[in-house]
Nucleic acid binder design. Structure first.
Lengths: 202, 202
DNA sequence: TTTCATCTATCTACCGATAGATAGGGTTGA
DNA sequence: TCAACCCTATCTATCGGTAGATAGATGAAA
C-alpha cells in the first residue's frame, strides 16, 4: 500500500466521521463525502466497497480511539472523579466541535436501519464504555471489600456496579443529545453537574 | 371537512408517528407512508404539502398528547415518586411498542438537518418536559420553604430545580436510546432504577 | 537493462431505485 | 354547482453502486 493510498483512505475516514457525527449515518452521502475529500465517489467505493463497510470501519476506529483515551485516563490518576471528568470531556468536545455528537450515540438513534455490520460495531462501543466505567466504579468500591463479603453479596454488588455503569453511559449520551438540541454547551455542563450533585457521578 | 377526510388525515398522522418513532424523520418516506395508510403519496401531500409540514404537525400533536398525560398524572396523586413513575412510563411504553423511541428523542438526533418548522416543535417538547418536571420537583421542595429563604437563595434554588429537571429529562432520553440499542426493555428499567438509587429521580 | 505483465488508485459515465413534490383530472357529497 | 378529496402521471434531484478505462508504480523475466 503506497503512502498516497493510505493518505486518501485516512482522509475519507476523517471526513466521514465528522459528517456522520453531524448528520448521522443516513445523512452521509458518498458524493458529498467525495467532494469534501477531493476525489470522486467511485474512489470511496474502491476503499470501502459498500456504505456498510465504511460505517463499520468508522465505528471500529472510533471505539479503538476511545479505548486508548480511556485507558490513558486510568494511567495518569487514581481518582475516580478525575476519571469521570475525563470521560465526560470526550462527549463535551464533540459538542464543542460544531455541535457534533458521539459517533455511536447518533448512530444508536438510527439503530434499526443500520447495516448489520455497522450495528455490531456500535453495540461494541456501548460495551467498552460500560466495561471501562465498571472498572472505574470498582476501584471506588475496592475488590478487597467485595471479597470480604459473602459470595451472594459480592455478586449483587457486581451487578449493581454494572447497572450503575450503564446508567452513567446512558445519562451522558442523553445529556449530549439534549444539549445538542439546545445548541448550548452550557446545558451539557450543567446537566453533568446535576448528575454529580444527585450522586449519579463520582 | 368531511368525516372521511378527517379520518385519512388522522390515519396518516398515526402511521407517520409510528414510522418516525421507528426509523426517524429522515427514514420516513411518503410512498411507504401512503402504502401503510392505503392511499397514494399525492394524497399525503394534499393534507401535508411538505414533509416539514407533516413533521411539525406530528411533533406538535405528540407534545400536546404528552402535556395532557403529564397533567393527568399531577391530578391523580400528590406523590412526586408516583409522578416520575408515570413519567418514565411514557418512554418505556415506546420501547415496548416494537422498540420504538420517543418521537422527539429520535428527532433530536437528527436535529441538524430537520426542517426549521420541525425543529421548533421538537424544541418545544423539551421545554414542556422540563416545565412539568420543574413543577414536580417544586412540589417536593415546597414553595413555602423557598419563600422563607432570602431571595438570592430562592433564586439559586429555582435554578437548581431547573437544572435537575433538565438532567432528569436528558437521563431518561439517554436510557431510552441505550436500551433501544440493546433491544432489551430490562435495560431501560434497570437504568431508571439506577437513577433512582443514585438519587437523580425522586 | 529493457520489456512485459500486473497491481494500485483513480477517473468518467452510467445504472436502477427512490426521494419529495407538482399538475391536472375524476368523483362525491353537501 | 362547488369545494373537498383522492387519483394518475410525471418531474427533478439524489441515492448507493457498477462498468470500464487509464495513469503510474512495481516486479520479474529475457
Amino acid at each position: 500500500m503506497t503512502e498516497a493510498a493510505t493518505d486518501t483512505k485516512q482522509m475519507i475516514m476523517s471526513a466521514a466521521r465528522l459528517m456522520v457525527q453531524a448528520r448521522g449515518f443516513n445523512g452521509l452521502s458518498f458524493r458529498e463525502l467525495a467532494k469534501e475529500v477531493g476525489v470522486k465517489s467511485a474512489s470511496i467505493h474502491y476503499h470501502f466497497p459498500t456504505k456498510g463497510d465504511l460505517g463499520a470501519a468508522l465505528a471500529r476506529r472510533y471505539t479503538e480511539d476511545a479505548v486508548l483515551y480511556f485507558d490513558g485516563l486510568l494511567a495518569v490518576s487514581d481518582d475516580p472523579a478525575a476519571h469521570i471528568r475525563g470521560y465526560t470531556e470526550v462527549f463535551r468536545s464533540a459538542l464543542v466541535n460544531n455541535n457534533r455528537m458521539c459517533l455511536c450515540g447518533i448512530m444508536a438513534a438510527e439503530h434499526d436501519d443500520l447495516p448489520v455490520e455497522v450495528r455490531a460495531e456500535v453495540d461494541k462501543f456501548t460495551k467498552v464504555n460500560v466495561k471501562w466505567l465498571v472498572k472505574v466504579l470498582s476501584r471506588q468500591q475496592p475488590a478487597a471489600q467485595a471479597q470480604a463479603q459473602a459470595q451472594a453479596q459480592a455478586q449483587a454488588q457486581a451487578q449493581a456496579i454494572e447497572r450503575h455503569a450503564l446508567a452513567i453511559f446512558a445519562a451522558v449520551e442523553g445529556a449530549q443529545l439534549v444539549a445538542r438540541g439546545r445548541g448550548d454547551i452550557a446545558v451539557f455542563d450543567q446537566t453533568i453537574e446535576a448528575y454529580r450533585t444527585a450522586g449519579l457521578l463520582p
